[in-house]
Design a protein around this nucleic acid. Structure first.
Length: 431
RNA sequence: UCCCGAGUAGCUCAGUCGGUAGAGCAGCUGACUGUUAAUCAGCGGGUCGCAGGUUCGAGUCCUGCCUCGGGAGCCA
C-alpha cells in the first residue's frame, strides 16, 4: 500500500505524503484538532484545521477513538516542538478500522490488568521501546558470533536426555518412546557440535518448570549458549566480557531513542568495558562476611549476596570456582582446589544479578561417568555425551546468557516479564 | 512449597465506630484555532472476589475457599 513511514518524514518537509497507522490520542479545540498517530516506526502529530478540510473529513474526527487505524494524507511541516521535528497538516483522513472502548487508557494500570491485555499493551510507547531494544540485542548476538567465526547450531527443543536435573522439566508423551522433555539447555548438544565446527552457539527458547516467583524468572526464556573447542575457563571469561560489552555498546549506539523513552541512566552502561573484575567464590564468601552476610563456604550465593557483592564494583563482575557440590555434573574440577570447579557466573550491576553461567567442561571420560553416576543419573541416557570423551576428547568451555535478563538490565526495567512479547509464568498462559 | 500483601464502577483507588456505594480518569453531550495525559461545564456507570456465619442491619466483624501481586528457595 502506498504510504510513507513516519520515521522517514524528517527529510520530507514540504512533501505531500500518506501515513498509515493507529490513533494514539486526539485533542480538539473548536476548529482545530490534533491527532497523534503511530505506525511502529514513530509517532506523528497530525493537525486538522476545519477551514482546510471538507466538512466530511472534519466530521470523521468524531470516529477517531484510541487505536482506530487510519489513513492520513497531508503536507509535512517542520515544527521544533515535535519529537521528530515534524508534524502533518492534514488534507484528507479516512478510518480503516474502528476501535471501540480500547481497554488500555493513557492513565495508570496495574500489572495484572496489563498482562491480561498484553496483546494490546504491546502497542504502548514503553513496550514498543523495549521490543526494539530486544530486537537489536538479538541482531547483535548473531553479529558478534558471526564476526568471530562461530557457526549457529539449532539444538533440539524436544529431548530425551536431560541437562541438569529432572525436577523442573516440562514433560510430554513422545509416541512409543516414553517421556520427552522440553529443553532447559542446548549445552550438551553444542558440545557435540563444537567438535565438528570448532566454535558454535545455539540460541533458542528454553523451558524450566521451576515454580519461581521473582522478577528474574520466566518458565520460557531465550538463552544464547556458545561453546568453544580448545578453550579453557580463562578464555571463556574473556569471550564473555567481550560479548556482554559488545551487546551494551550496540544498544547504546543503536537504541539511543528507545533508552531515552525508557529514561535509562546511560552512565552505568557506558562503564561496561573489558576487563570485568574476577573474584573467586572463596574470596567472595570472605568479602561478603566482612560486609555483614552470614553466608558459609559451600552455600550458593543468594540474590541479596549477589547484590551486596556487585555494589563493590562499577561494572559486571565474574565470580568463579564455586564448590563442586552446588554445581552441575559436567563442570571440570579445579586442579588447584579440587573442592571447586572451573566455572564462573557473570553478575550484572544495579541489582540485576546473574546474567551468565559458564564453565570449562569435564573432558575426561571416567571422571565424567563417575559424576553422572554420583548424581544418580542414568549413564545410558548420556551415552552419546560420553562418546565425545572417547573419540578425541578436547578441552572446551562455554556459557549461557539469559537474554531477557540482559535486555531488562540494558533497558533498566525492574521485571524481566516486560522484555518478551508474551511472557510465560506460573500463573500466566494467556494471551 | 513457604512468608507477606491485595481483591469495591471499564481502569486506578478511597470508604472513619457496623447504619442509603464515593472520587479521579476513561466513555457520552456541549464550548473553545496550537494542544502535548489539553482545559472547562454537564450526564450515565456497582453480583463490594466466592461461600457460609454473627447481627435489627455487613464493603466493614468471624471462618473457609479462590484469584492476583511482592519476596524466598531454584536458576539464566
Amino acid at each position: 500500500m502506498e504510504h510513507t513511514d513516519i520515521k522517514a518524514l524528517g527529510g520530507q518537509v514540504g512533501a505531500s505524503v500518506t501515513v498509515l497507522g493507529w490513533v494514539v490520542t486526539t485533542r480538539t479545540s473548536g476548529k482545530i484538532a490534533f491527532v497523534v498517530v503511530r505506525d511502529g516506526s514513530g509517532y506523528l502529530q497530525c493537525v486538522v484545521s476545519k477551514r482546510d478540510v471538507t466538512d466530511e473529513v472534519w466530521s470523521r474526527l468524531a470516529e477517531l477513538a484510541q487505536e482506530t487505524s487510519v489513513r492520513v494524507a497531508g503536507v509535512v511541516r517542520a515544527d521544533p516542538r515535535q519529537a521528530g521535528g515534524v508534524e502533518l497538516t492534514v488534507t484528507d483522513l479516512a478510518v480503516i478500522g474502528p476501535s471501540v472502548d480500547f481497554p488500555i487508557s493513557p492513565k495508570e494500570h496495574g500489572t495484572s490488568f496489563l498482562f491480561e491485555h498484553r496483546h494490546l499493551w504491546l502497542r504502548s510507547r514503553k513496550q514498543v521501546a523495549i521490543a526494539k531494544v530486544r530486537h537489536r540485542v538479538f541482531q547483535a548476538i548473531h553479529d558478534f558470533y558471526d564476526q568471530r567465526g562461530f557457526s549457529h547450531v539449532s539444538t533440539p527443543i524436544l529431548t530425551g536426555s536431560i541437562g541438569e536435573d529432572a525436577g523442573n522439566l516440562f514433560a510430554t508423551e513422545y509416541f512409543d518412546l516414553g517421556q520427552a522433555y522440553l529443553a532447559q539447555t542446548g549445552q550438551l548438544y553444542v558440545e557435540a557440535a563444537c567438535a565438528a565446527l570448532g566454535r558454535v552457539y545455539c540460541f533458542g527458547p528454553t523451558f524450566r518448570a521451576e515454580k519461581s516467583k521473582t522478577r528474574r524468572h520466566l518458565t520460557e526464556f531465550w538463552m544464547v549458549e556458545p561453546e568453544v573447542a580448545f578453550a579453557d575457563s580463562e578464555d571463556n571469561m574473556r569471550l564473555q566480557e567481550d560479548f556482554v560489552s559488545y551487546l551494551v555498546a550496540r544498544a547504546l549506539d543503536q537504541c539511543a531513542e528507545e533508552l531515552k523513552e525508557l529514561e535509562r541512566d546511560l552512565a552505568p552502561l557506558e562503564r561496561v568495558v573489558p576487563p570485568f573484575p574476577r573474584i573467586s567464590y572463596t574470596d567472595a564468601v570472605a568479602k561478603l562476611n566482612q560486609l555483614g552476610s552470614d553466608l558459609a563456604w559451600g552455600q550458593d550465593l543468594g540474590g541479596d549476596d549477589e547484590t551486596l557483592l556487585c555494589k563493590e564494583y562499577d561494572r559486571p563482575i565474574f565470580v568463579k570456582n564455586y564448590p563442586k557440590e552446588v554445581k552441575a555434573f559436567y563442570m571440570k574440577e579445579n586442579p588447584d582446589d579440587p573442592r571447586t570447579v572451573l566455572n564462573n557466573d557473570c553478575l550484572a550491576p544495579e541489582g540485576y544479578g546473574e546474567i551468565i553461567g559458564g564453565s570449562q567442561r569435564e573432558d575426561d571420560h571416567d571422571r565424567l561417568l563417575a559424576r553422572i553416576e554420583a548424581q544418580g543419573l542414568d549413564p545410558k541416557a548420556y551415552g552419546w555425551y560420553l562418546d565425545l570423551r572417547k573419540y578425541g576428547t578436547f578441552p572446551h568451555s562455554g556459557f549461557g546468557l539469559g537474554v531477557e535478563r540482559t535486555v531488562a538490565w540494558i533497558c533498566g526495567i525492574p521485571h524481566i516479564r516486560e522484555t518478551i512479547a508474551f511472557p510465560r509464568q506460573i500463573h500466566r498462559l494467556y494471551p
